[in-house]
Design a protein around this nucleic acid. Structure first.
Length: 294
DNA sequence: ATGTCACGCGCAGCGTGA
């Protein structure tokens, strides 16, 4: 389980102690639980995340919006619970992590040709990959877009398009590859994925170009498995903190999991953990939990 | 209730992002 971090990489994974070598090999797992969750600050919610891991029996947790640099990430909390951690964070914005108790190998920060953003265009910490239990897991925090006339919007479309080109290449090169693209996609693919379409008609998340960019992953052979297993309307994954959106169930469904052809038939169940939005100190997104036969 | 939360900065409360 030794993993040497090249000195020039921005990835914040800590080398783990030899005790992690006792982790069960993927071949003996039988089943794996993979969860994606936009946690909206890991420092504000580390204890909540560990409690979730233990309650849900999650094996691999892909986090988005950790909102910290690598040096600020609370690695110890997760390592004490028996997990390995890879984190990619460059500032107080964005930040993605993968937390696993079934192996964490070949960590990759960002995808090839990932678009940059800003006055001085720079890479943002929005994509992180690791192989866990035989599955290539990508934790993704798709750019928000902000507004249809904002530079962040074409950046979002470019970002999705470039990711899709990569994903298509991965499964073309290896049709047996088990790839999971999970995270906060910041797209509501269907009209019913927002609580009131009228409220969003001039906003990002529901525009046709965004929906087309999202749907292109299907064309590339991927399947959005949360919809397959949870097809009902009003099963949201995000509720704004403002205006009593959660108690009124005025939310958005924007957290998804695209799986490659080899992985799709192995997904046996999906659950949106609505209860995690309750109480003081909740993230504005909830975990989306996948059961995978591996 | 024009009704939130978390960040940096820096020690109050504003600017930023979502």
């Amino acid at each position: 389980m030794k993993y040497d971090i090249p000195s020039d990489t921005a990835c914040g994974r800590r080398p783990t102690s030899s005790s992690f070598a006792a982790t069960a090999p993927a071949a003996s797992l039988g089943a794996m639980r993979l969860t994606t969750w936009n946690i909206n600050s890991i420092r504000a919610r580390a204890e909540r995340a560990v409690a979730f891991l233990e309650r849900s029996e999650t094996d691999v947790l892909a986090l988005q919006e950790t909102k910290c640099k690598d040096a600020q990430f609370p690695f110890e909390v997760f390592e004490a619970a028996g997990y390995e951690v890879a984190h990619f964070g460059l500032s107080q914005w964005n930040g993605v992590a993968i937390i696993s108790r079934v192996g964490l190998e070949d960590v990759e920060t960002g995808f090839p040709d990932q678009p940059h953003f800003g006055e001085e265009p720079a890479l943002e910490a929005r994509a992180l990959a690791a192989t866990c239990g035989g599955v290539r897991v990508w934790s993704l925090y798709v750019p928000n877009g902000r507004a249809l006339d904002n530079p962040h919007y074409p950046y979002k479309l470019d970002w999705l398009s470039t990711l899709r080109e990569n994903a298509q290449g991965w499964v073309t090169a290896d049709p047996a590859a088990k790839v999971a693209l999970v995270g906060d996609w910041n797209v509501a693919p269907q009209d019913t994925d927002v609580w009131d379409l009228e409220v969003f008609k001039d906003s990002t998340h529901v525009s046709q170009p965004e929906r087309d960019a999202f749907a292109a992953f299907e064309t590339a052979g991927f399947t959005e498995v949360t919809r397959v297993h949870v097809p009902e309307d009003r099963k949201y994954t995000y509720w704004d903190y403002q205006q009593l959106r959660f108690p009124k169930n005025q939310g958005m469904r924007i957290d998804f999991a695209y799986t490659s052809p080899a992985l799709t038939p192995l997904v046996t169940a999906v659950e949106i953990d609505r209860n995690e939005r309750k109480g003081k100190g909740a993230s504005d997104h909830v975990p989306v939990i996948l059961d995978i036969a591996v």
